[in-house]
Design a protein around this nucleic acid. Structure first.
Lengths: 333, 333
DNA sequence: CTGAAAGCGCTAACAC
DNA sequence: GTGTTAGCGCTTTCAG
């Protein structure tokens, strides 16, 4: 590997001068500057970012701790984060849940000396949250957040639940199933609370056999669960899924069984991922304005990184909207 | 930030000893070792990976230069790469095309001192390819490859093109349109050659107005192009797309126009991305066995990183298969 | 087994 | 303007 020392030798200057033309070109006289530039070209030199980071103590990199890309919500989010960060001169390192615990991910994130972190995969009471919030490393929780404190951006999950449940109830459905994510996540807890409220008010509390908690990292139980429910004497006429990813997986199962949507059963999601709007899905869902959510997270994070306004609490709640498309329909006896 | 020096002081040992318990715990006597471990806990110490990399000269990180996640092929590939690399103890840094040129991406990749690189976004004659192949950094081209040389894994693109074109021709279609990616990419060139061959043999050379080259990074022209073709006096009865991403975007447009698939027009893709198999799409395509392709790339890359067998040429061509699903049908007059 | 010391490639004072 | 020097936080000889 060719280093700045090699360049210096080739150009007949000191190594510090090489560093200068890299970081502050005007500060070195054109003649020498060109000599250096030439040598850089010649030797095909590339500065070692690792070494640079070690001394500047900043990496111009943010970390994004994301859920699986099998879920289109995370794709949309990642896309917007990466692109905006890039525009602002920051690189994004991506970390996934997978088999590692958040604790382990957090260790490596810290080890990489990133300038800030966006987390979209935390359960509300994870013990590392304390660490994260006290680390001094700028952070934004995106979508999923701690039970208490932290900087976050989310939608009003309760309202999202209410909107979708009201919609389904108003369509005349009485046997309504719920596919929920695990309640240790703020998103799914809030959404379910909203749904529960509406269902209770409508005199239609959710029946035990019609409520299922899905591991949203794998979605692996969905097929079995949906298949089983649809075998009941009185199968549900509507299935509310608390994420688009679950809804889309659910549709795959139902269509595979030869059922029609929304003819036989209405389906709804929450997230309004890009994919949900495809003509082949036209999924009724509740809208996140996903692009905003990732971008707002980045904007805030970079503010913190720049101005060191780490103390200002940033807790942003967006108002979701109902997107009625073609997977939900009036229930007829 | 707490450093190993702090730990050393707290544990009453030298900083070198701290380093030892981290890298080679057996080499330090249990009493001291425990003291150090305790101090690490106490201080919540995390080793600075940046500093470590600077001296070990390895990062245990590979880079993946990928196309946009708007394309499900790249999602599937990325997913398999990240997971396998993680199992093997490597982190993956992800880089996207976006507005940067491959040259710029390559600069930053080199700067990050990654141990190896997987590239799936190269055009055949990009001048940086020479640099990359001569850099001494282990690399695998995935799917898209240089015109000459390099280590790569791909499917037999020509055969893929032949398979899909034969299928469409055998279904009785005569007015066949082609939505191709840009021919500077080996994938799209190979696929089109295969298609051309079959069409020529069938006496149905592609008509000028029915062939379009799409910027696969954005897919932005698809709507206009498809819409225009379908206004012809004799619109095509089949549209062959040389990637699933194009096919799925194409379906969105057609369905949005109120046309039926495959009733009014047959659609096919190439890639066999996971999404293509969804019941809502059931896209006829040609299979990559995507999981294998990402994994084979990682396996080979790690071999090179480990054994330094950089000289062995690794040029792997997989045989694709036709996956007939429900977007293609017999053409009736 | 363990401490002292050198040095990875760079930036950032500090002199001249 | 430019060279010299001192680290950034680690790993890795080299002594002992």
């Amino acid at each position: 590997m060719v280093s700045s020392k090699d360049v210096a030798r080739a150009a007949g200057v000191s190594q510090a001068t090489v560093s200068r033309v890299l970081n502050n070109p005007e500060s070195v006289r054109p003649v020498k500057r060109n000599k250096v530039l030439e040598a850089i070209q010649q030797l095909n030199y590339e500065p070692n970012l690792i070494a640079r980071s070690l001394v500047t103590n900043n990496t111009r990199t943010i970390a994004f701790i994301s859920g699986s890309m099998r879920n289109n919500f995370f794709i949309d989010t990642m896309d917007s984060i990466i692109n905006l960060a890039k525009d602002r001169g920051y690189r994004t390192m991506i970390f996934f849940d997978g088999n590692e615990s958040l604790k382990d991910i957090w260790s490596t994130v810290k080890g990489h000396m990133v300038d800030g972190v966006i987390l979209s995969l935390v359960s509300m009471d994870d013990p590392v949250l304390e660490d994260i919030m006290n680390s001094g490393i700028p952070h934004m929780f995106l979508s999923r957040r701690p039970r208490f404190g932290g900087n976050y951006i989310e939608i009003d999950n309760r309202l999202a639940g209410e909107l979708i449940a009201s919609h389904v109830v108003e369509l005349g459905h009485r046997r309504i199933a719920l596919l929920s994510g695990e309640l240790q996540y703020s998103t799914f807890l809030g959404r379910k609370e909203g749904i529960d409220k509406v269902m209770a008010e409508a005199g239609l509390p959710l029946e035990a056999g019609l409520v299922h908690y899905i591991n949203t990292a794998t979605l692996s139980e969905i097929e079995k669960v949906v298949w089983k429910m649809m075998q009941f004497n009185e199968p549900p006429t509507a299935i509310i899924c608390t994420s688009d990813a679950m809804a889309i997986a659910c549709m795959d199962v139902l269509l595979g069984m030869g059922l029609s949507i929304p003819g036989d059963v209405s389906i709804s999601g929450i997230d309004d991922s890009k994919l949900a709007a495809h003509q082949s899905f036209q999924l009724t869902t509740v809208g996140h304005k996903i692009f905003e959510i990732g971008e707002i997270a980045v904007e805030n994070l970079l503010e913190m990184i720049g101005h060191k306004e780490i103390d200002k609490k940033r807790q942003i709640v967006l108002r979701p909207e109902l997107m009625i498309r073609r997977t939900t329909a009036r229930h007829v006896e």
